[in-house]
Design a binder for these strands. Structure first.
Length: 221
DNA sequence: AACCAGGAGACAT
DNA sequence: ATGTCTCATGGT
């Protein structure tokens, strides 16, 4: 069995299903994907809650109707709030112009991915998060944890590019139940980094045995 | 009190 | 193509 598949099984046995993405609607998932860029999820929750207190339905048109300065103060807790105001508005504008979910759901996966990558403020990880968790399409999401964990396991170079790592992971995960497996693996990698690898300088309880979130230390047992 | 968090774009080389 | 800066709040 491939390493990505073994990591998925190991983490799943350790932590169980993660039922991601944690959002009640598809569009809120998309908003969360932008707000969580390089930002702790607890801060994103504060921003989403304040946003929903003013725009309960949390849809594209009502958000575009907000004065940008108002939007900025609502999402402030998520950090980078000036940047994210522009990015959120760009996403909403694109979503409306594209015809919403009715039209976007008809796009082929690669077309959808390319379209998202064309939106200002949407890079590879944000685009692929939306494609996987918002549209249930089989695209693996790569983030800093993914690269760090698999490079420390000795499987890939720490300098490996986004697309190379993504296609390597997808190949390793096989052609069966792709959406569910990509979903779980990405969510489990993030959860694992959060709950199990915060011990410095090493991770005695780490189920992956040779991974640690911080510093250069590794558990070599 | 430094360090980190579910990145991306602008700009220089 | 690749490297470096900047952006910002809140928890540990």
């Amino acid at each position: 069995m491939s390493l990505p598949a073994r990591v998925l099984d190991t983490l799943y046995q350790a932590y169980g299903p993660q039922h991601w993405w944690p959002a009640p609607t598809r569009f809120e998932m998309m908003v969360g994907a932008v707000l969580t860029q390089n930002t702790a999820w607890t801060n994103v929750e504060k921003a989403l809650n304040s946003l929903k207190s003013e725009v309960p339905e949390l849809e594209a048109r009502p958000l575009l109707a907000l004065p940008p300065a108002r939007l900025a103060e609502l999402i402030r807790p998520s950090g980078y709030y000036r940047l994210k105001t522009d990015r959120l508005r760009a996403l909403c504008q694109w979503f409306v112009d594209a015809g919403g979910f009715v039209a976007l759901d008809r796009l082929a996966t690669d077309e959808l991915r390319r379209a998202l990558l064309g939106v200002h403020g949407v890079g590879y990880e944000t685009a692929d998060s939306i494609v996987l968790y918002g549209f249930q399409r089989p695209v693996m999401v790569v983030d800093a944890y993914t690269r760090r964990i698999f490079s420390r396991l000795g499987a890939v170079s720490p300098e490996i590019g986004y697309e190379s790592l993504r296609t390597w992971l997808e190949a390793g995960l096989g052609t069966h139940e792709q959406v569910a497996r990509y979903n779980e693996l990405h969510a489990l990698l993030v959860s694992h980094a959060k709950v199990a690898c915060r011990v410095r300088p090493a991770c005695p309880d780490c189920v992956l045995r040779r991974h640690c979130q911080y510093g250069n230390a590794t558990v070599t047992s």
